[in-house]
C-alpha cells in the first residue's frame, strides 16, 4: 500500500513482523478467551465448550466467593497504590530537586536494581524476613508487639507489604521524571510572589507533577490487581487474590469458560477503576487550578511593577 506511489517499500513494512507477532500471540489469544467466556464447562473431563452460548459464566463470575475475593483484591490494590504514592512522593521529590545533579543518575540506577532483579526472589526474601524463625519475628515477639512469631507471614498484611515493595520502583521512577521536569524557576517565581515553601509545593510543584502521578498509579495499580505471585509466596491460604482464583480455574478446576469470564471481568473492572481515578484526579486538579488562578489574578497588578 505505497501511498506516494514510489518504487521503494513503504517504511511501515519494518513494523509488520512485530505487528503480526503481537497479533498472533497477544490479540488473538485474548479474543479466544473472550469467546470461551461465553461458553461452558462440558462435564467432568472437558475444559470448555461453546456449543451453548450464554452470559451465565459472567453471572457465575459475580458469585459471592468471587466478589468477596475481588473486593479484597481491589481494597489491597487501592491501599497498596496509595501507600506507594505516599512513600514515593517525598523520596522522588528529594531525588529530583534536592540531590546534586551529578548524583541523581546513581540514585535512579539504585531504584532500578531491585526492579531488574527477580521479582519472585525478592518476594521470597520477604518470606525469609517475616518467617517465624527469623530475627524480626523473634524481636517483635520479645518486645510484645506480636503475640505469636507465626503472626507475620501468611497474612493479608504480609501480602500488602509485598505488593507495596514489589511495585514501589514503578511509582518512584515516573514521579522522579515528573519532578525533574519541573522548572525550578517556577518555584522561585512562586516564592517571589510571596507563597511559602509549603504553599509553593502544594500549588505549584505538585500539580506540575500530576502526569507522573497518573503514570505511577497506572503502572502500580494494574499489575497489583493481577498479581498472583506475591499472595502465593507471602499470603498462604489467607491472602488469596483474584489472580490466584483465575489461575486455579485454569490449572486446577479445568474450567476455562469460568476462568476466561473472570479474566475479562478483571480487565474491564481494572480499566474502569483506572479511568475513574484519573478523571477524579483531573477534576480535583481543575478545581484547585480555578481557585489558585483567582488568587494570582488579585496579586498580578502589584507584582508587575516590581
Amino acid at each position: 500500500m505505497p501511498r506516494n506511489g514510489s518504487s521503494r517499500l513503504p517504511g511501515f513494512v519494518l513494523a509488520v513482523p512485530a505487528w503480526l507477532w503481537l497479533t498472533a500471540f497477544f490479540v488473538v489469544p485474548f479474543l479466544q478467551i473472550a469467546w470461551f467466556s461465553l461458553g461452558e464447562k462440558p462435564g467432568m473431563f472437558g475444559s470448555h465448550s461453546n456449543a451453548v452460548m450464554s452470559l451465565d459464566r459472567y453471572a457465575e463470575a459475580f458469585s459471592p466467593t468471587f466478589f468477596t475475593i475481588f473486593r479484597a483484591t481491589l481494597w489491597m490494590s487501592v491501599l497498596g497504590t496509595v501507600a506507594c504514592l505516599l512513600i514515593a512522593l517525598p523520596a522522588a521529590y528529594f531525588m529530583a530537586l534536592k540531590v546534586p545533579a551529578h548524583r541523581r543518575g546513581l540514585l535512579v540506577a539504585l531504584v532500578m536494581v531491585p526492579y531488574w532483579t527477580s521479582f519472585l526472589i525478592r518476594t521470597i526474601g520477604w518470606k525469609v524476613i517475616l518467617s517465624s524463625e527469623g530475627a524480626l519475628a523473634g524481636f517483635l515477639t520479645d518486645v510484645g508487639l506480636v503475640a505469636d512469631p507465626h503472626d507475620l507471614l501468611n497474612t493479608r498484611g504480609a501480602v500488602l507489604l509485598g505488593l507495596i515493595y514489589n511495585y514501589l520502583p514503578l511509582m518512584i521512577l515516573p514521579l522522579y521524571v515528573a519532578f525533574d521536569r519541573v522548572d525550578s524557576a517556577l518555584g522561585e517565581a512562586s516564592k517571589d510572589l510571596g507563597a511559602g515553601r509549603i504553599r509553593t509545593f502544594f500549588q505549584v510543584t505538585l500539580p506540575l507533577a500530576r502526569p507522573g502521578m497518573i503514570a505511577g498509579i497506572i503502572l502500580v495499580f494494574i499489575p497489583m490487581m493481577g498479581d498472583y505471585v506475591t499472595p502465593a509466596v507471602l499470603g498462604g491460604t489467607k491472602g488469596t487474590m483474584v489472580g490466584s482464583l483465575i489461575a486455579s480455574q485454569f490449572l486446577t478446576a479445568q474450567n476455562w469458560a469460568l476462568g476466561s469470564a473472570m479474566a475479562v471481568v478483571l480487565i474491564l473492572l481494572t480499566m474502569l477503576i483506572v479511568i475513574l481515578a484519573i478523571s477524579l484526579m483531573w477534576a480535583v486538579g481543575w478545581l484547585l487550578h480555578r481557585r489558585s488562578r483567582l488568587v494570582i489574578g488579585t496579586v498580578r497588578t502589584k507584582e508587575v511593577t516590581a
Binding site: A15, F30, M225, I267
Partner: peptide, 27 residues
C-alpha cells in the same frame, strides 16, 4: 499506522501478566 501500533504496544505493556498467561495456555 503509528497510532494503532502504539496502542497495541501500550496494551501489551499494561496487561497484567496473568492475563497473557491464561490467554496463551488455551491458544
Amino acid at each position: 499506522w503509528t497510532g494503532p501500533f502504539t496502542l497495541l504496544l501500550l496494551l501489551v505493556s499494561v496487561t497484567p501478566e496473568i492475563v497473557d498467561g491464561i490467554a496463551l495456555l488455551p491458544w
